[in-house]
Write a protein that binds this DNA or RNA. Structure first.
Lengths: 152, 152
DNA sequence: TTGCTTCCCGTTGACGCCCATAGTGCCCCA
DNA sequence: TGGGGCACTATGGGCGTCAACGGGAAGCAA
């Protein structure tokens, strides 16, 4: 398995460290990531974390934009400047910097959420709220398309 | 037979484990699932459980969406983040995590329900209530479509 | 020094592996 | 045809391993 799946919540210790779930660490290794890169999400208080290929995806998107327009410049600024490297220590822990705390609201616990090609880190209660909102939107989507039916 | 059929209810032991019905286990083996993946159902307090091919269909669906829109993000969040691995121990048991208990209301017993390509787990009394509601809807549907006819 | 990071080690609790037992259905053979 | 025994499932529990976690100590920079 080489996708980030499922979720887990771990505690931050007195030194500001938190264990990355073992399953995620093995995915990181299988994918051959030597470094982890964390990006502030635009519309939610979470960070996207993955290898440097996380950037490729955004860069492709930027390439589609007209380089004379402000949008391309904004996007470039966002992904290249608004990120941080996360160093895994040899016990598989990362240090939660103020940069991350500010954006996510994380204080004492970190929720890790698999997203397939990458994973996210959240403040647990905010994650719960976001999860509920997502489920509500998807439910509405389903009922809008096929009332009463469940997609198989 | 390689479909999940019928249903059964088993007890959770003091360590939080429950036996997967033997028939389901043989289906799991025939289908070659090395791991089971459980997904929270959107509209009912149950989990869909199957192999990782459960995700394939959803991922194909996501691929059709614009990856920079919210819908794609929601869908990915739901299938990748709102799931959990169920590891079968060598006696064919799984451990019921809090993640599952929260969504299903399961406490001491688990009802397994075959659904063909996958199966579901329920809290037994909620399953009974849901079953009754489903039958009522189907009955109403039939009477609505074919007035004057008697259901068999 | 002071503060911060990295390496290393010990503890603890959860989980997987293993074995044991009880209940049940099935088969075989007298 | 009925009884005994085999096979298998569900369930309980002991025990070892490993991940998460806490903290000491060394290295490094201001």
């Amino acid at each position: 398995m080489d996708r980030f799946l499922s979720s887990a919540t771990n505690r931050i210790d007195s030194k500001g460290r938190v264990s990355v779930p073992a399953h995620f660490r093995s995915v990181v290794q299988k994918r051959g990531y030597s470094e982890l890169y964390a990006l502030r999400c635009l519309d939610v208080p979470a960070m996207d974390v993955g290898g440097l290929d996380l950037l490729d995806r955004y860069e492709e998107r930027i390439a589609q934009e007209d380089p004379f327009l402000q949008t391309a410049d904004d996007m470039s600024f966002f992904i290249h400047g608004d990120g941080a490297f996360l160093k895994l220590d040899q016990d598989g822990r990362i240090t939660v910097s103020d940069f991350i705390r500010e954006h996510t609201g994380i204080t004492s616990e970190v929720a890790f959420v698999g997203r397939g090609q990458f994973f996210q880190i959240w403040e647990p209660s905010r994650l719960a709220a976001h999860g509920a909102a997502v489920r509500a939107r998807l439910l509405q989507l389903r009922q809008g398309t096929k009332p009463g039916e469940r997609p198989e």
